[in-house]
Amino acid sequence: MIIGIPRETASGESRVSATPETIRKIVNQGHRVMVQSCAGVRAGVTNKVYEAAGATIGSASDAFGAELILKVVAPSDSELTLIKRGTVLVGMLNPFNNETIAKLAERGITAFALEAAPRTSRAQSLDVLSSQANIAGYKAVLLAAHHYPRFMPMLMTAAGTVKAARVLILGAGVAGLQAIATAKRLGAVIEASDVRPAVKEQIESLGAKFVDVPYETDEERECAVGVGGYARPMPASWMQRQAQAVHERAKQADIVITTALIPGRKAPTLLSAETVAQMKPGSVVIDLAAAQGGNCPLTVADQVVIANGVTICGPTNLAGEVAADASALYARNLLDFLKLVFTKEGQFDVNLEDDIVAACLMCRDGQVIRKNA
């Protein structure tokens, strides 16, 4: 089978969907890989390196003309015109965007969105959300350190002592836990909050203090358990108590990193404008939920704004700023997914009895398989 690796054209996207490591493995399985010229330059991979791994370098038309295309993000309208009917497309296609999936179906594309994979042990090796969120959590702390006008660690110098920065992390999923670990390495004093009680041990094991908001009803406890590794919307009564706890700690924090997301829904508000107004001048907010509306109403996607002396950053693709490692992890995720749709003989086969394949299949034969309300 001919597998195409196009160069990503989305604004600010520097990742690539295949690396020399994964291309060698794909070629060894009997497939031909067509890489668009300069597809990996922003991730530190040249055409010569791809060729040495066994790939053929071609044009955009060559890559998009392949039988199976591996992408980082969903193709643009102009890219769609280069894709033939019956082509298989695998990538992070935003499965909750019905318009995007409808366009793919209209073009007769068989599309798999890896973000839709179930959060199970078997699917961990192809969990693109986790692999990219891990990088985002790391980079978020470095971005905060860049904007924070003081040192992160405590320093004792001849000129006096510098206090350690106080960091508050809201949401302890993959990104949040990596942010805790990174901030700890930089010497910060860390507190973290999450609706799920199960993450308390993880938070404390990384050296942070858990901001505990007790549950008062069975409904609150049930919602806190979450679904598929994600938090569920919490009752208003609990949200009010958490908001008050966050408000008090944010006033004392130097850096706040918010990471809370609910798949397919607007991000919950965790840091109110009123709280930001009472934060210390010079403090920093990094809102990792900016692409889904933000955890703070003052966040502007892909911009840095200053409100009441507080710097608020709304990055939507921090993983793309660590392009080499982000691409390496993502390419391995794709490779592990391909193992599920190729037989041992190298034939493409959609096995809908496989729960991962069935969950990721968005459209096929001109029909939308999964549509969100």
Rank of each mutant, 00 (worst) to 15 (best):
A158Y: 07
R15F: 15
L338P: 11
A63Q: 09
V33Q: 01
Q303M: 14
A291S: 13
G44W: 11
Y230N: 10
S17E: 03
R150L: 15
G207F: 01
K139M: 06
L340F: 11
T161C: 10
T22I: 00
A175H: 05
L142T: 13
E8F: 12
F210W: 11
G264F: 14
I57P: 02
A301E: 14
P297R: 07
I312L: 15
L89F: 11
I26L: 14
R364D: 01
P6K: 06
F210T: 07
I255C: 13
T182G: 10
G293H: 12
P118D: 14
D77E: 14
L271H: 08
R249E: 08
I255T: 09
A18V: 04
D325I: 14
E201Y: 15
V162F: 04
L361Q: 13
Q242S: 06
T56F: 01
G309L: 06
L335N: 06
G229H: 14
I135M: 09
A60I: 04
A250L: 06
V195D: 05
Q367E: 02
S37A: 11
L80N: 11
R265H: 11
L261C: 07
I109N: 03
E219S: 07
M152K: 11
R221L: 02
P197N: 04
A277Y: 00
S327E: 00
R85F: 12
I135V: 13
G160T: 04
R332F: 11
T299D: 13
R332S: 01
P268E: 09
T56Q: 05
S17D: 04
V227A: 14
D212N: 07
A133H: 12
E353Q: 06
V35Y: 03
E191R: 12
G58E: 04
T258A: 11
A102P: 06
P281R: 09
A277I: 05
K251M: 02
A172I: 01
E99R: 15
S59R: 03
A113M: 02
L142K: 14
I169C: 06
T299Q: 13
T316H: 15
G226S: 07
A290F: 13
K184N: 13
V49C: 02
T182P: 10
V211C: 02
L338E: 10
R265W: 13
R332W: 10
K339Y: 09
T259H: 15
Y230L: 01
N98Q: 09
